[in-house]
Nucleic acid binder design. Structure first.
Length: 587
DNA sequence: GCTACGAGCGCC
DNA sequence: AAAGGGCGCTCGTAGC
C-alpha cells in the first residue's frame, strides 16, 4: 500500500468547497505543486513532475479523501504537471475507512483519535493565498515538504491500523462512490440559466421589500427584533416555517407588513439560487456535473451529500416556478432508470422484530399500510387506499411515525409531515396509546435496547452494539447516564461516531433500522452495477441509473427485479421496488 | 480572520 | 412516564 497526497494552491475564495473537487482541480489557478508518496519502499516529496508516476501502475494506493487526490492526479496529467499516465491497481480512501470505523473523517482528527498524536496544522493556514514560489522565497519550502511527507506517513499508518476492520464489500462501495464523480450527470444549461435569472429577480424583489436591507444583515434575528421594537410590535422567538409561534405571528401581522412574507421568500429564493449557481460552476465542458456523495456520511452508514451540492435534498417539485430536478437530463441517446425500494424501513422493522404475520401479509401482496390496518386498526374492508383513503393515510402516519418511540406531542407534527394527516392533541394521545397496545413486538424491541443501554451505562462500557445480519455492528460509544433538570432519566448520552447524542430504546431502534435498510440498499446497488447498469447517484432508497435508450426497458426490469430480491444474508426479507424510465430526473 | 454553532429549509 | 431518526447548505452571530 502506497499513500499519495497532493498539495495545491488555494485561497480564501479559490477552494474545493466553492468549486467542488473536479472544477477546483482542473481550474487554471490551481497549481498542483507538490506530491508526497510513501510506502512499499518509496518515500518521495516534491514537485509532481519530478516523480515517475509510472512506478504507481499496478500498485494499491491510498489517499485521505481519495475523491480529491485522484481527481487532482487526473487534472495534473491533463495540465502536463504529471508526465506519465499511470493505472494503479486500486485507489482507496482512508477518510472513508475512518468514517466506517466510527472515527472522525479529517486526517488530523482521525490521527488524534486513533493514535493520540497531534498533527501540526499551521502550514495549511500559512499557505492560504500563497504560491509554492512564495514558500521557497520565504524559506518555508523545507517545512512544507516535511509537512506533506508527514501527512502521507500518517495516512499510511491510519490505513494499516484500521483497514483490517473494513470488509471487502464496503471497500467496493467506497470505490463505487468515487466513480460517480467521473460519470457525472448531464445538466440542461438553458433551464439552469433561466432558473438562475428568475430566482435572482425574485430574490432582489424580496430584498426590496425588507426595510433594513442594505443597512444590515437581512436574515439577522437581532436586527428583526430591533425593527419590530421600533414598530411597537412583538417579534417571534423563531421564524421557522412550521413553528406555531411564527405562524400565529405571521397571521396577525402579515397583512400589515409585506416584509414579513418577503423575509421568508428572500431566504428560500436565495438558498435555491445558491444551489443552482453551485451546479453551474461545477459544469464540465461536456455539459455534465460530477456527482459527489459522501460514503458513510451518516453514522448509520448512509451516504450523505458532499462537495457543495447535495444531490439528496433537491426539491421534489416546483418552487417559485423553478423546478430543479428536471434540469438533470439523461445524456443523448440515453434514459434514466429511476427505481426506489418500497417502504424499506417499516419492512426492516417488522423483520427485526420477527413479526411473522405482518411479513407474511406483505409477502402475499397486501399493501403494507393496509396490512397494518388489518392487524391493528380493525380494517376488514377491501382495498383500503380506494375505499377509505383518509384512514389509509392515518395507517401510513402510524407505520412511519410511531415505530421509533415518538410520543403524542411529536406525532402531531410527524403525522402531518409524513402523511399529510391533521390530528388534534387528544387524537394523538389515543392513536399513540392504541398503536402501542397493538404493536407489542416493536415496544419490546425498544425495551430490549433500553436494557442493553442500561447495562452499558452500569458497566461504564466502552461501547454497546447491535449486530446486523449484514455482518456489521451498529455501535454507540461511551454510554453514560444522562442527568437532566428533573433528576435522572432512564435515557443516556452516548457518542455515535459523529457527536454526542441523547439515546433511548426508540432512537436506537431507528438507528438500527436505518442502518439495516442502508445495507440492504447498498447490496442492491452493487448487484445493479454487477449487471452492467451504471448508477449515477443514489438517494437513500432510490437509485438513478443511466442506460442506452434501446436497453431502457430491459434495464428497468433488471433493476426492479434486483431491488425486489433481498440480499443473500437476509433472504426472508420481503422487498418491493417501483420505478420508471425517464428523460429527466423527477420524483 | 478563523472556527463553531444555531436558525432555517430542503430531502429520505 | 416520556422519547422519531438521519443528513448538507446558507446565513448570521459569537468567541477566540
Amino acid at each position: 500500500m502506497i499513500a499519495v497526497d497532493f498539495e495545491t494552491y488555494y485561497s480564501r475564495t479559490h477552494t474545493v468547497s466553492t468549486l467542488g473537487p473536479w472544477a477546483y482541480a482542473h481550474h487554471p489557478k490551481t497549481d498542483i505543486y507538490m506530491v508526497s508518496v510513501v510506502g512499499e519502499g518509496i518515500e518521495f516529496v516534491g514537485d509532481p513532475s519530478d516523480f515517475d508516476f509510472s512506478r504507481l501502475t499496478g500498485r494499491d494506493l491510498v489517499s485521505h479523501n481519495a475523491a480529491f487526490d485522484s481527481v487532482v492526479a487526473r487534472a495534473a496529467i491533463s495540465k502536463g504537471t504529471i508526465k506519465q499516465t499511470f493505472v494503479p491497481k486500486s485507489w482507496s480512501c482512508s477518510a472513508d475507512l475512518a468514517a466506517y470505523c466510527g472515527q472522525p473523517r479529517s486526517l488530523a482528527d482521525a490521527v488524534k483519535a486513533v493514535f493520540g498524536h497531534e498533527l501540526p496544522k499551521v502550514m495549511r493556514q500559512v499557505m492560504s493565498g500563497k504560491s509554492w514560489q512564495w514558500a521557497q522565497d520565504k524559506g518555508k519550502a523545507g517545512q512544507l515538504l516535511e509537512y506533506a511527507l508527514n501527512d502521507s506517513r500518517w495516512c499510511l499508518k491510519l490505513w494499516e491500523k484500521l483497514a483490517p476492520q473494513w470488509p471487502i464489500h464496503e471497500r467496493r462501495l467506497s470505490a463505487h462512490t468515487r466513480t460517480l464523480q467521473w460519470r457525472g450527470v448531464n445538466v440542461e444549461a438553458d433551464k439552469l440559466r433561466t432558473g438562475i435569472t428568475h430566482l435572482a429577480e425574485l430574490n432582489a424583489a424580496a430584498a426590496d421589500k425588507i426595510p433594513w436591507a442594505g443597512d444590515g444583515a437581512i436574515l439577522s434575528l437581532p436586527v428583526l427584533r430591533d425593527y419590530c421594537q421600533t414598530l411597537g410590535i412583538p417579534a417571534p422567538k423563531s421564524l421557522a416555517k412550521d413553528s406555531d409561534e411564527a405562524i400565529a405571528w405571521e397571521d396577525k401581522y402579515g397583512d400589515r407588513f409585506e416584509w414579513i412574507a418577503a423575509l421568508r421568500d428572500y431566504r428560500r429564493t436565495n438558498i435555491l439560487l445558491q444551489k443552482l449557481q453551485a451546479i453551474d460552476v461545477r459544469r464540465r465542458a461536456d455539459g455534465t456535473m460530477p456527482v459527489n456523495l459522501k460514503y458513510w456520511g451518516a453514522h448509520t452508514g448512509r451516504w450523505s451529500g458532499d462537495a457543495g451540492v447535495n444531490m439528496q435534498n433537491l426539491p421534489r417539485s416546483e418552487m417559485f416556478n423553478v423546478n430543479v430536478r428536471p434540469m438533470f437530463m439523461a445524456r443523448s441517446g440515453h434514459k434514466f432508470v429511476i427505481v426506489d425500494l418500497s417502504q424499506i424501513e417499516p419492512r426492516v422493522l417488522y423483520w427485526l422484530t420477527g413479526d411473522a404475520p405482518m411479513l407474511d401479509a406483505i409477502r402475499s401482496g397486501v399493501p403494507l399500510y393496509e396490512a397494518h390496518a388489518r392487524a391493528t386498526m380493525g380494517w376488514t374492508g377491501g382495498k383500503m387506499k380506494d375505499e377509505a383513503p383518509d384512514l389509509y393515510r392515518l395507517a401510513k402516519a402510524r407505520v412511519l411515525g410511531l415505530g421509533y418511540g415518538c410520543g403524542p406531542g411529536k406525532f402531531q407534527h410527524v403525522a402531518q409531515a409524513l402523511a399529510g394527516v391533521t390530528l388534534d392533541a387528544a387524537q394523538c394521545e389515543d392513536t399513540v396509546r392504541q398503536w402501542r397496545s397493538g404493536n407489542e413486538r416493536i415496544c419490546k424491541f425498544w425495551l430490549s435496547l433500553t436494557r442493553k443501554l442500561g447495562c452499558g451505562v452500569n458497566s461504564q462500557a466502552d461501547h454497546i452494539e447491535f449486530g446486523l445480519p449484514s455482518g456489521r455492528p451498529v455501535r454507540w460509544w461511551q454510554p453514560r447516564l444522562r442527568i437532566d433538570e428533573t433528576g435522572t432519566n432512564p435515557g443516556a448520552n452516548a457518542f455515535n461516531g459523529k457527536g454526542w447524542t441523547y439515546l433511548w430504546g426508540g432512537k436506537m431502534t431507528e438507528n438500527i433500522v436505518q442502518a439495516l435498510a442502508r445495507d440492504v440498499f447498498a447490496d442492491c446497488v452493487m448487484r445493479i452495477e454487477a449487471n452492467g447498469i451504471r448508477v449515477l447517484w443514489t438517494v437513500h432508497d432510490e437509485v438513478i441509473c443511466e442506460v442506452p435508450e434501446d436497453q431502457a426497458d430491459d434495464a428497468l426490469d433488471t433493476v426492479t427485479r434486483i431491488m425486489s430480491t433481498p440480499p443473500d444474508w437476509i433472504s426472508d426479507l420481503p422487498l418491493a421496488a417501483e420505478g420508471g424510465i425517464e428523460n429527466h430526473y423527477a420524483k
